[in-house]
């Protein structure tokens, strides 16, 4: 099977996956004990208002019709509107205004995790069974076991009171920022300002970056631990393989040996970890955004769920499912490029 047919097969197989997830979401929302209309109005809603909303949501129609409406609308990207959070606003508008902060957070979370986890793991793997290896490995294990939300709580406290605790003020470090706040990303919407108005724009960018670093560190923590661990085993395995021994025997310099023969091959098992990180980010962003009160998609989801904005929740679920499926396909594609030995028959 060629790469193209393999990717085509992957794409076709992802359709039932998306349908399944969306159907489950529909089932929970429409067949669950909480009617969307009752959820929107809360416990005090009177019967007339409930009837009105049921009418507008089409809840009076036969279930199968509702189902096909729901699925059809989602697949055509007619994502409906918000009912409680921001009544009457199209869901798309809400998502567009909330998403950039989550993406900014996710971007830094991945970057931090990669930038710290992989080098540490490779270092531990190149110096196995030394004190620093044990220290790094043990640290990675504990780091991974720490609940994100707890780590976030601790970090918020430490940073906002760093002046009293350590005599070093994080809030006034480089640029003045708050710890618990949404980063202002206006500058990224209009990057031309970085040149036209450098003073203001660069300060804003620095602020946005500094604000996102602590939550990103928390969000990346779990994957950082995993990356370190896998990086270490991958390096250990490559070091002990025959071709490295051969290269050593023919006199390849240690530098070339590490960078060319060990490093590149050790990266292969890290690919699924990096994509798996995306799932962690999606779940974890809910908690981290709550603690740091970042107005992102995760916080939007929790707010929508808690306040009973079920139509919006359904839409967000659908988008998350699309995102995960998409990332899975990207991962498989990356695999076929990085490691041509990967079988196409899976």
């Amino acid at each position: 099977m060629s790469r193209a047919t393999y990717m085509l097969k992957r794409l076709v197989l992802s359709i039932p996956v998306i349908i399944f997830g969306t159907t489950v979401t529909f089932a929970i929302i429409r067949l669950g004990p909480l009617s969307p209309a009752a959820a929107i109005l809360g416990p005090k809603g009177d019967a007339r208002a409930i009837q009105q909303i049921e009418q507008r949501l089409g809840l009076n129609e036969p279930l199968w019709e509702q189902y096909f409406d729901f699925m059809g609308n989602l697949f055509l990207f007619d994502l409906g509107q918000s009912w409680v959070i921001n009544s009457g606003t199209p869901a798309v508008d809400l998502i567009i205004s909330y998403a950039p902060r989550t993406i900014w957070l996710g971007f830094w979370a991945v970057l931090i995790a990669l930038g710290i986890g992989i080098p540490l793991g490779f270092y531990a793997g190149l110096n196995p069974n030394t004190f620093s290896d044990y220290f790094a490995s043990f640290g990675g294990i504990v780091w991974r076991a720490m609940p994100n939300f707890w780590l976030a709580v601790i970090l918020v406290t430490v940073l906002s009171q760093s002046e009293q605790l350590f005599g070093f003020s994080w809030t006034s470090f480089i640029v003045e920022t708050n710890v618990v706040t949404s980063p202002n990303l206006a500058v990224l919407r209009n990057p031309a300002r970085l040149i036209t108005d450098p003073g203001q724009a660069w300060t804003n960018l620095a602020k946005a970056t500094k604000q996102i670093l602590p939550p990103a560190l928390v969000l990346g923590s779990a994957s950082m631990g995993t990356e370190m661990r896998i990086g270490r085993t991958a390096v250990l395995e490559t070091i002990n393989s025959k071709y490295v021994e051969t290269a050593k025997a023919k006199g390849v310099s240690p530098r070339v040996l590490v960078w060319k023969h060990i490093f590149r091959n050790a990266l292969i098992p890290l690919v699924p970890v990096i994509t798996a990180e995306a799932f962690i980010l999606i779940g974890g962003s809910v908690l981290v955004e709550t603690v740091f009160s970042i107005n992102g998609i995760g916080l939007l989801f929790v707010k929508a769920a808690k306040q009973g904005d079920l139509p919006l929740v359904g839409t967000l679920m659908y988008l998350f499912i699309l995102l995960i499926v998409g990332l899975n396909i990207v991962q498989d594609f990356a695999y076929t490029i990085i490691d041509p030995r990967v079988g196409y028959d899976a």
Binding site: P16, V17, I28, G32, P33, V286, F301
Partner: peptide, 19 residues
């Protein structure tokens, strides 16, 4: 695959609210 493609924590949040 389908079950794993659903964001687990969010699904649980949704289900807890509905139930």
């Amino acid at each position: 695959d389908s079950v794993q493609a659903m964001p687990a924590l969010l699904l649980v949040i949704l289900a807890t609210v509905v139930f």
